[in-house]
C-alpha cells in the first residue's frame, strides 16, 4: 500500500500550462489579467493548438502579453486588433488568431473594428477584459465605467449628463447576425474561474469549427484603478459590476450549441 501511495504522490496534479512562458508577469497585485492568461494557455494546451495559435495583443495593460505565451504574437495599434487578426485569418485560415483587448481598446477607440469584425462574422476569437477603468494610463474613465464611479478623469463620479453611460458590449454585439458565440463571464471566485475557462474553450472551438466570431467578455478586477485592496476588489466587482453587466451567454448559434453538446466538452 505504501508503494501505491508513493506512486500517487509522484503524479502531477497541478503545473504551469505548457503554453505559458516561465517569466514573472508585470501586472499589479490582484489584477485579473494573470488568471485569464493562464486560462487561455490551459485551453490552448488542452486543444493542442499552440503551434497554430496567434496572440494579437492590444494597447493597454496587456500590450505586451505576447511575451507571456509561447506561441506567436503580434502587436496591434489601439483598437485595431480585430482588423489585424482578421487579416491573418483571411490569409491563413489554418492559424488560430485571438485578440486580447481591454475595455478602452475594444469599446472606445476600437468600437468600429469590433462591430464590423462581428458584422462580417470574421472567424476569429476575441477576449474582452472589462475592468471598468483605464489601468495603464492611470485610472481614467473607460467606456464601461459605471455611473457614479470615481476615476481620475471623473473626479465627482461618472455623471451621465457629462460623460454618458457605460456600454454593454455583449448586449450590443449580440444584436448582430455575424457573431456565433458571445458570453460574459467573471473570475471573482473559483467556480466562476471554471466557468470562464469553459467559455474560453468554447470560443476557441467555435473558431476551430469555422463557425464565426466568438467573443468572451471577462469581468475582471483592477484593485489599483479602483482604489481597493485585492480581496475587496472581488467583492466590489460582485456588488457593483454584476448588476450592470449580468453574466451569461448572449449569443449561441445552433451550430455552437451543437458544439457545446459534443461529448467530452468541459
Amino acid at each position: 500500500m505504501a508503494q501505491t501511495k508513493a506512486a500517487k504522490s509522484d503524479t502531477i496534479l497541478f503545473a504551469a500550462p505548457q503554453s505559458l512562458e516561465d517569466v514573472p508577469l508585470h501586472y499589479c497585485p490582484g489584477c485579473g489579467h494573470g488568471i485569464v492568461h493562464r486560462l487561455i494557455a490551459e485551453v490552448v494546451d488542452k486543444l493542442g493548438i499552440a503551434d497554430r495559435t496567434v496572440c494579437v495583443a492590444s494597447v493597454g495593460c496587456s500590450a505586451i502579453n505576447y511575451l507571456y505565451f509561447k506561441f506567436d504574437g503580434l502587436e496591434s495599434s489601439h483598437g485595431r486588433a480585430p482588423a489585424s487578426a482578421s487579416g491573418i485569418k483571411r490569409c491563413r485560415p489554418d492559424l488560430i488568431p485571438f485578440t486580447y483587448q481591454g475595455d478602452g481598446d475594444l469599446a472606445a477607440i476600437g468600437t468600429a473594428e469590433i462591430v464590423h469584425a462581428c458584422a462580417r462574422g470574421e472567424n476569429i476569437t476575441v477576449f474582452f477584459i472589462n475592468n471598468a477603468i483605464y489601468g495603464m494610463t492611470g485610472g481614467q474613465m473607460a467606456p464601461t465605467t459605471l455611473v457614479g464611479m470615481h476615476s481620475t478623469s471623473t473626479p465627482g463620479g461618472r455623471n451621465p449628463a457629462l460623460a454618458g453611460y457605460p456600454i454593454k458590449v455583449c448586449e450590443m454585439l449580440s444584436t448582430l447576425e455575424g457573431p456565433a458565440y458571445i458570453a460574459r463571464v467573471s473570475i471573482y471566485n473559483p467556480a466562476q474561474v471554471r466557468r470562464a475557462k469553459q467559455a474560453i474553450e468554447l470560443a476557441f472551438r467555435t473558431q476551430l469549427a469555422g463557425l464565426g466570431l466568438a467573443l468572451v467578455e471577462v469581468l475582471s478586477p483592477c484593485p489599483v484603478g479602483w482604489g481597493v485592496e485585492p480581496v475587496q476588489a472581488m467583492d466590489w466587482l460582485v456588488e457593483h459590476m454584476l448588476p450592470q453587466y449580468p453574466l451569461g451567454e448572449y449569443k449561441v448559434t445552433e451550430a455552437v450549441q451543437a458544439l457545446k453538446e459534443v461529448k467530452g466538452h468541459a
Partner: peptide, 14 residues
C-alpha cells in the same frame, strides 16, 4: 483604419 490594420495582419502572416 481597418484596411491598413488588416494589411498589417496579412503582412505579419507573411
Amino acid at each position: 483604419l481597418s484596411a491598413i490594420n488588416m494589411v498589417l495582419g496579412a503582412s505579419a502572416a507573411g
